[in-house]
């Protein structure tokens, strides 16, 4: 068992495109759930619509990548409006059911062979990163330090991703300290109270849904820039993983989603490197290497349960600003 290699793989995960994408998704979800109390169970759908909007704009319509990214974000806005209009006037669990259903509808639409020329069906989409890589100002070659040694193109994804994360964090921080954020936090606790003070609760919730949706879609786009787009990624489980990441860090905090998503991926990478290694040296009898990979997800599920039960405010949250109001 090469323990150094396991540590190195774990640390390398910090800057992986998937991690950066999850950080953004968790930030967006913190706007939805953490601050506004909206039960968005369609995180995977928002990520998918960002990623596919980006990839299809380039492959089918031949647009330059910055414009394609904007279209991916715009598609998320439309998606948020479609989700919000029927459900935001209803009790919270209706939004949960509708978002989870809509995300699944999206995935099936991307998966069906009917639209193969556009969506690539089960094979997904690839080969749309050329324009993005052409805009890479970094020196070519492979460079970096220790576990963080990447190709120039990978560095370009990481830099764009980190800048996007910084913008998202700043945006959420600015929004939440403003009077707008005050109304949003009030709505999370009691819609009727805020409505009785002359605030249009529906409009505020819709704005929060759109803002969070845009940030989640940005996460989908960043992930797509680094890897390919495949419908099997955007399953309901992905939504649950983002929820786990968010709750781990602290849902109603600014840096919680960042910390949570990074930790989530580090722990996952650590376990999926460590457990098969333990199996191979015979420390985990009864398990095959494949089974030990599934054990990682069993542990993720158990961790989510324990978190919600014993530390619902997450690592960075305070007990006073409780996450679960209802």
């Amino acid at each position: 068992m090469n323990f150094l290699q396991i540590i190195s793989n774990t640390l390398a995960q910090i800057l992986a495109p998937a991690t950066l994408g999850y950080v953004l998704a968790a930030i967006g979800l913190s706007v939805h759930f953490g601050f506004a109390g909206l039960l968005n169970m369609g995180v995977a759908g928002f990520m998918a619509i960002g990623a596919y909007g980006f990839a299809i704009s380039i492959l089918t319509f031949g647009l330059p990548w910055p414009l394609a990214a904007l279209i991916g974000l715009a598609a998320a806005v439309v998606f948020a409006l479609i989700m919000g209009i029927p459900t935001l006037r209803l009790r919270g669990d209706y939004l949960a059911i509708v978002t989870i259903a809509a995300a699944e509808v999206l995935r099936l639409l991307f998966l069906t062979s009917t639209f193969r020329p556009v969506t690539g069906s089960a094979d997904g989409l690839s080969g749309f990163q050329a324009g993005f890589r052409a805009s890479n100002p970094l020196p070519p070659g492979k460079w970096g330090w220790g576990p963080w040694t990447y190709q120039s193109d990978q560095w370009w994804v990481i830099i764009v991703g980190v800048i996007t994360i910084a913008i998202a964090v700043l945006l959420v921080w600015a929004l939440m300290r403003s009077p707008w954020g005050r109304v949003i936090r009030g709505i999370r606790e009691d819609e009727d109270a805020v409505g009785s003070l002359g605030k249009n609760v529906f409009a505020f919730k819709m704005q929060a849904l759109v803002v969070g949706g845009i940030i989640i879609a940005a996460g989908g786009i960043i992930t797509a820039m680094g890897t390919n787009v495949n419908p099997n990624v955007y399953v309901t489980s992905q939504t649950f993983y983002v929820w786990t990441a968010l709750l781990l860090g602290g849902a109603a905090t600014i840096f919680g989603p960042v910390l949570g998503a990074v930790l989530f991926w580090m722990v996952r990478a650590f376990l999926s490197n460590l457990l098969p290694a333990l199996v191979s040296i015979g420390w985990l009898p009864f398990l095959t290497p494949e089974q030990s990979q599934m054990l990682v997800f069993v542990l993720v599920g158990a961790a989510l349960m324990l978190l919600v039960i014993f530390r619902p405010q997450g690592i960075l949250g305070s007990k006073k600003e409780l996450t679960f109001v209802r």
Binding site: L175, P179, W180, V183, K199
Partner: peptide, 15 residues
């Protein structure tokens, strides 16, 4: 929160 007509409650102006 009780004050009406707040400019900072418009999402564009809030940031």
């Amino acid at each position: 929160l009780g004050a009406p007509k707040q400019a900072g409650e418009r999402i564009g102006a809030s940031i």
